[in-house]
């Protein structure tokens, strides 16, 4: 094989990010629509109260379901915001600062949400 100028270092992160957006998008569609239908028609908005949530979270499966809903929706949304920053901001100081803020916000919200689900 002849030699060519080396390819720029790319890694596979962007590919997995792209794949994650597609897969999580489809999964979220199913999970979020199911959640919505259950809340609005299964239980009914007027019946929703603390007791309903407490009863539901008595089951570890519901906690798992809600944790995955949180994880997927938050990661999907935050990754989307990261991509927007890549496209709309020039590389450099401000983009880096905003991405760090975004990452911290992501971790904070994830930990807070998980904390509630696990320790309720």
């Amino acid at each position: 094989m002849a030699s060519y100028p080396p390819a720029p270092p790319t890694g596979r992160f962007e590919m997995y990010s792209w794949l994650f957006m597609r897969v999580s998008g489809i999964v979220l569609l199913v999970m979020a629509v199911f959640h919505l239908l259950l809340m609005h028609y299964g239980i009914g908005v007027e019946q929703l109260n603390y007791q309903v949530v407490a009863t539901r979270w008595g089951s570890p499966w519901w906690r798992l379901y809600d944790f995955f809903l949180l994880l997927l929706a938050l990661t999907h949304g935050m990754n989307g915001a990261r991509i927007l920053m890549d496209e709309y901001l020039r590389a450099g100081g401000w983009r880096l600062v905003l991405k760090i803020v975004l990452s911290l916000l992501y971790l904070l919200l994830l930990v807070m949400g998980a904390w509630v689900i696990v320790t309720f």
Binding site: Y4, A7, P8
Partner: peptide, 19 residues
């Protein structure tokens, strides 16, 4: 053609098809 791997390496990053 035999250079698929080299070409895909150039296209796989954020500056390639995923953009």
């Amino acid at each position: 053609d035999h250079a698929t791997v080299e070409r895909l390496a150039r296209l796989a990053g954020r500056c390639g098809v995923w953009a």
